[in-house]
Amino acid sequence: TTFEIRVGDLRITLHNADEEEIRWAEEALRRGIHADEILRTLEERRR
């Protein structure tokens, strides 16, 4: 599944994310964390 998060002009697309990952990514985007860093962190958490 694919889920797109939008916060203002910012956007990130997550693939195969669970609800916790989606909530975490949305909050991180709101705090101004760059999408590349969010994706990198999620990848590390999945390992």
Results as ranks from 00 to 15, higher is better:
E26L: 15
N16G: 06
E37L: 10
F3W: 04
E21V: 05
A17M: 05
R46P: 02
L42P: 00
I33K: 09
E27R: 13
V7C: 10
A28F: 08
F3M: 14
G8K: 03
I5N: 01
T41C: 07
E21I: 05
I5Q: 02
R23E: 11
R6F: 14
V7N: 03
G32D: 03
R30V: 07
E19Y: 10
R11H: 15
R23A: 11
H34I: 08
E19L: 08
T13N: 03
E27A: 13
D9W: 04
A35E: 08
T1V: 10
E44Y: 14
W24C: 02
A35P: 15
I33D: 07
L14G: 01
L39T: 06
L42H: 02
R47M: 14
E21K: 01
R6D: 08
T1H: 13
R23T: 09
G32F: 09
E20G: 12
A28V: 04
E4W: 03
L39K: 06
T41E: 12
I5R: 00
R46C: 04
I38P: 00
T2Q: 11
E4H: 03
H34N: 13
T41S: 09
L14S: 00
L29S: 02
L42Y: 03
G32E: 03
A28T: 04
T2K: 07
E26Y: 15
E21M: 09
L42A: 01
V7P: 00
T41H: 07
E19F: 09
R23C: 04
A25R: 00
T41N: 07
A35K: 06
R6M: 13
L29D: 01
V7T: 02
I22T: 03
I12H: 01
N16Y: 05
L10K: 12
E4P: 11
I5K: 01
A17G: 03
R11F: 13
L29Y: 04
G8F: 02
R47A: 09
W24D: 01
R30K: 11
D9Y: 07
L10F: 08
I5Y: 01
G32P: 00
R6K: 13
N16H: 06
R46F: 05
F3V: 15
E21C: 09
A35L: 05
A25C: 03
V7W: 11
E26A: 14
I22H: 03
E20P: 06
T13V: 12
E27L: 14
L14H: 00
I12S: 01
D36V: 09
G32I: 01
D18M: 08
G8C: 03
E44T: 12
R31K: 09
I22F: 05
V7M: 04
D36T: 10
E27F: 11
I22C: 06
G32N: 06
R6Q: 14
A35R: 05
R31F: 13
E4L: 04
F3N: 15
E37Q: 08
R11I: 15
I38M: 06
G8Y: 04
D36H: 09
R31G: 07
R47D: 07
W24G: 01
I33W: 14
E19H: 10
R31H: 08
D36L: 13
N16P: 02
R30S: 10
T1N: 14
G32L: 05
E26K: 14
L42S: 01
D36G: 08
E43L: 14
L14Q: 00
G8R: 02
R47F: 14
F3R: 14
R30Q: 07
R31W: 12
R47Q: 11
R11T: 15
L14P: 00
D36I: 11
T1I: 14
R23Y: 07
I12E: 01
A25N: 00
N16W: 05
D36Y: 14
L42T: 02
A25D: 00
D9M: 08
A25Y: 02
E44D: 09
E19D: 12
E43R: 11
L39N: 04
R6P: 03
E44N: 11
R46A: 04
E26C: 12
E44G: 10
L10I: 12
E44S: 14
R47T: 13
R6Y: 12
I22Q: 04
T1G: 15
E20S: 13
A17Y: 02
A17C: 03
E37N: 08
L10S: 08
E27N: 13
E19Q: 12
T41G: 09
V7K: 01
A35T: 10
R46H: 08
T41V: 12
I22R: 06
D9E: 10
R46T: 03
D18N: 12
L29N: 02
E4A: 01
R46K: 07
E21Y: 03
E20H: 10
L42F: 08
R47E: 10
A35V: 12
I38E: 00
R6W: 15
E27K: 11
H34L: 12
V7I: 11
R30D: 02
E4Q: 02
E26R: 14
R45N: 09
A17E: 02
A17N: 02
E26N: 05
G32T: 01
G8P: 01
E44Q: 13
